[in-house]
Amino acid sequence: MSREGIYDIHCHIVPGVDDGSANYEETKKLLRMEYDQGVRNIIATPHFRFRMFETPLSKVREQFKLVQQAAAEIGDDFNIYLGCEFHANMEMVRMLREGEITSMAGSRYVLAEFGGSSEASYIKERLYSLLASGYKPIAAHIERYEATRSDIDFVEELVDMGAYMQINADSIIGKEGFGTKRYCKKLMKYDLVHFVGSDCHNLTSRVSRIGEAYNYVSKKMDEAYADHLFIENPRKILADAKKRKER
């Protein structure tokens, strides 16, 4: 593992803005859990979904400052950035352009979530819409969607189109069942995964096991491949954000 530690690009640790961390104390404990798992860089991704999670970005940013404060108390090598898990809708591009929603750390990367029963045509259309508008879509936890889970050729089609695929740490190590674990292993075998996230929400039912997932991938694939998923690809998000900021 790189000395800079691993990255978690999908987690719900901003307190009081979605169904993740409930308060500052829980956020501190979640961050400590992440740090102990070997994470040194986090992109926090609060949900945005119409009629479910519509916390204004101003409020999210305000709460995000608490996350940065808590991380600084844990270690000066602990870096936290703000992103969003954006539930796909027809207003995505407009909302991103008008600053109603943040991308991943201010980069061109966008973490896009779909419903479990979303049709393949809708997934493809929404990801293509982001691509055509200059964004770099990351499809969140693709092991949850019937359209991707039942058709690995469709996943390959999305990747060939230019989209990126993310899977969850718990899915890799078998916490979501053997079938899901086997599917994730198949995705990795065919090089159809670009990112892994903890998708942690709380201290009980949805904790961070991303360090365990890194160790599993290192053992089953190899360390170079694990570094590719958990360090090198996430690093590109921050590099893109820096480049975009300098323009």
Rank of each mutant, 00 (worst) to 15 (best):
P56I: 14
G99K: 08
R61L: 00
P46V: 03
V60N: 03
Q37F: 06
V93A: 10
L82M: 04
K28P: 02
G99I: 07
I42P: 10
A105T: 07
G75S: 15
A72E: 11
R40Q: 13
E34V: 08
E34Q: 15
E62N: 07
G83E: 12
A44P: 00
Q69L: 09
L57A: 09
G38V: 04
E85K: 00
N89F: 06
A72I: 02
K59V: 14
K28S: 12
R40K: 15
L57H: 10
M33R: 12
G75M: 07
P46S: 05
V39P: 03
E100F: 15
A105Y: 08
F64D: 00
E98L: 09
Q63W: 02
D36K: 12
V93E: 10
Q69C: 05
R51K: 15
D77K: 08
M92Y: 07
M104P: 05
E54C: 03
E100Y: 15
L31A: 05
I42Q: 13
F50W: 09
V93G: 08
E100S: 11
I101N: 05
M95P: 04
M33D: 12
K59R: 13
N79H: 14
K65R: 15
K29N: 11
N79F: 13
V39D: 03
M104F: 02
L66P: 02
I101S: 03
F78E: 01
L30A: 06
I74Q: 06
L96T: 03
M33A: 08
I80A: 03
H47I: 09
Q37H: 12
R51D: 15
Q37G: 08
T102L: 01
V39N: 02
K59C: 02
Q63E: 15
N79S: 06
I43E: 07
L66H: 14
T27S: 12
S103A: 06
E54T: 10
M52P: 01
M95L: 12
R94T: 12
R97L: 11
Y35L: 12
Q68F: 01
R49S: 09
N41M: 02
F48C: 00
L66Q: 09
E54D: 10
N79D: 04
F86V: 03
M90T: 12
R32T: 10
M92Q: 13
M90F: 10
Q68R: 13
T45N: 07
V60H: 05
A72S: 14
Q68M: 12
I74G: 07
L31Y: 04
K65T: 09
Q37E: 15
